[in-house]
Every structure is written in C-alpha cells, then in structure tokens.
Nucleic acid binder design. Sequence first.
DNA 1: TATTGTTATACTCTATAACTATA
DNA 2: TATAGTTATAGAGTATAACAATA
Lengths: 159, 159
Amino acid sequence: MTTAPLDTLDLEARAHSEHAHELRLWLRLLTCSQLIEKRVRTGLREQFDTTLPRFDLMAQLERHPAGLKMKELSHRLMVTGGNVTGITDQLVTEGLVERTEVEGDRRAFRVRLTERGRVSFADMAQHHEQWIVEAFDGLGSREIDHLYKLLGKVKGGLK
Amino acid sequence: MTTAPLDTLDLEARAHSEHAHELRLWLRLLTCSQLIEKRVRTGLREQFDTTLPRFDLMAQLERHPAGLKMKELSHRLMVTGGNVTGITDQLVTEGLVERTEVEGDRRAFRVRLTERGRVSFADMAQHHEQWIVEAFDGLGSREIDHLYKLLGKVKGGLK
DNA sequence: TATTGTTATACTCTATAACTATA
DNA sequence: TATAGTTATAGAGTATAACAATA
C-alpha cells in the first residue's frame, strides 16, 4: 500500500477523490516526463541550437535509412501533416534531410537524412543518451526493466 | 530480461546503442505521457473549452483554498512568472479565480478560486479523473502502486 | 472520389528581458 | 539592492481547414 504525501511542491499536489491512486500515478508520470523533457529540450537548444521535434524527426529517419514518407512521419511523430512539412522544410534548408521521389506515386516524397544529417544526428544522439542515462541514474537495471514493462502495459491499454 | 521490439510505429523506434534500456524506457515513458496528455487536452478543449495549463493552475488553487502567490504558482507549475500572469489574467476575466491582497506585502497577490471557479473545477475534475482511470485500465491496483513507486525513484533522482 | 502533401491561419504556451512598485 | 509581479516580444508547437496535384 502506498501512502499519499500530505503535500508536495509540484503538480502532484492535485490528487484527491476515490481514484486517488490513478490520479497520483498520472501526475507523477507527467512530472517525470516533463522534467526529463525539459532537460532534453534545454540541452538540444543550448548545445545544438535545435528542438525536440526536429531531433525526433531526425531520429526516425536514422532508424529508416531508406527514408520515410511525410505521412509515415506524421503518424510516428504523432503530429498533423502541416507540422511535419514545416519541420522538414527547416531541416532541408539546413541540409540535414532531403526529399526524394517515390517511384510509382508522384504525390509522395521519401524524406531521408543527408550525410551531413547523419553526422549531425550522431553527435546529438550521443549527448541525448547521456542526459537520459543521468535521468535514470537512481534506478538499477532490474528496476529499469520493470518500469519498462509496466509502462508497456499502460501503453498497450491506450492503443 | 526485456527483449527489444524489432520496430514499432511510434517514438520508440529510436532506441539503440549500449544504453538501449534507458533510452527505450525514456521513449516509452514519453509516449505514454504524450498519449494520456493528448487525451486530457482534447477532452478539456472539447468538453470544457479550456486548456491543460489552465486546468493545472485551478487544480493547484483547489488544493490551497487560501490561495497561492504568483511566485508559488510559478514554482509549482514549473513555468516562468510571465506565463502565470497570462493564464491568471484569462481566468480572472472569466471570473474563475481572483487576486486578493497579501497583508504585509503590497507587491504580492494571493490568487484563489472564486465560488464559480470551484464549481467549474469540480465538474472538470470529475471528467478528468475518468480519463485517467481509463488510461490505466489495463493495470491492477498493485501494478499502479508499483509503477508509482518506481516513478518516485526516478523523480527523486531528478531533483 | 480519395489520398498525399502544402499552405494559410490562428491560437496556446513558453522563455527572456526590461520594467514598475514595493521591501 | 533585492523581490513580486507585469509587460513586451519572439519563437516554437499545435490543430484546422482549404487547396493542388496525383491516384
């Protein structure tokens, strides 16, 4: 049984009612996520003059060297198409990604990293990894695994 | 031991490298958080024509009937002062919160819910709770507790 | 007709820094 | 001098809807 803190100094000061456990869990999940995300955003901005959505887009492309269509990117990044166009435009301007033709469908593009984009991403990813490792510093590897599995159950229920 | 999925359709397609476990955990945490947050934002917008930051501010005030100073709100909501002023202004205009004087310090205000704000918040909070309960539907109460504790460790390491 | 992607628009949230008033 | 709060600004991120080109 978990005992509720009487009060805290952040978002978690919100839980009450009969479903207090679910609410507290959500607020803590949100707080953790926001704190880590804030650290990542700050790092990306200060050290690489870029943003999280741009990093995320490049990360998707790094996993798919052949490239991804705009619509696929939109789906994976969980944002609407117009936004992907905007972010892609920026990255194209900076020479980090490129639009290539899709044979058989002249409406679509396949977006992929340029060589420069790959080099740039590798550099950022290395630092990004460090920030994340630091964020979970307090957990042992079994706890990391366990947390991963529990969140998998959450994620599965959300689909 | 957790086995990495070969590929997924969302942000989690990003993990690699020697610290793959930490990275995967972060991406899953982020995905869960984003999905739930998206549901909450959509619900607040569609059913109450409001936003998450506004809801969060009101939630803080509901926990502190005597009111909170702008600076305290800023700290608890993890945003800078200017933003709190903006959101508070909106809520004051709509008659949901009010600024009251702090005796002994004429620079400061104490912001608190109006009666109308309390009623409005209670309504929103009820629906909000439902969305959250649904989000964790797949978990048993012991898993909820366990997840809460593990995230507590994460949170503790971030401070 | 449906789909891919772009454009245009508007709005929310955010950080930063300069500013006012008070301590 | 320091602190509480506001104002002004600029930028990031988002959703929506109308649009063009192609399927």
